[in-house]
């Protein structure tokens, strides 16, 4: 098994780990972390598999995609954190209120 697949598998596991954390945690900050870890997992899969060209240089297209993905991730994180902060300021609790409906 080449390291390519090793990293890809790590990516899969990271994705699942993040998903698991996203499920079990109620705290929003942790959820945001979990999403980031998931993202890292996906990126890892994308890039690891790009190395299968059989040459020295890997396929650059996934690399570009991942760079795009990272920027998207940081943007989303920033927005999510701000939302979380505002929500905490409103509710006094950094968790999703289970039932915000009347």
């Amino acid at each position: 098994m080449s390291t390519v697949f090793l990293y890809a598998l790590v990516g899969v596991v990271l994705f699942s780990l993040g998903l698991y954390a996203l499920i079990v945690h109620a705290h929003l900050l942790r959820k945001i972390l979990a999403i980031n870890v998931m993202g890292s997992g996906v990126f890892l899969v994308l890039v690891a598999l790009a190395k299968r060209t059989g040459e020295d240089t890997p396929d650059p297209v996934p690399h570009a995609m991942v760079i795009t993905g990272i920027v998207v991730a940081v943007s989303a994180t920033a927005l999510a954190l701000t939302l979380m902060l505002k929500l905490t300021a409103e509710t006094g609790n950094a968790e999703l209120p289970e039932d915000s409906r009347e």
Partner: peptide, 23 residues
């Protein structure tokens, strides 16, 4: 309060969906 929590839910769902899609 409602808008924020609604948006937060929405954002998380959105990100999860996007990542799944990206995978």
């Amino acid at each position: 309060r409602d808008a924020l929590s609604g948006a937060m839910r929405y954002l998380l769902a959105n990100l999860l969906g996007s990542l799944s899609y990206l995978f």
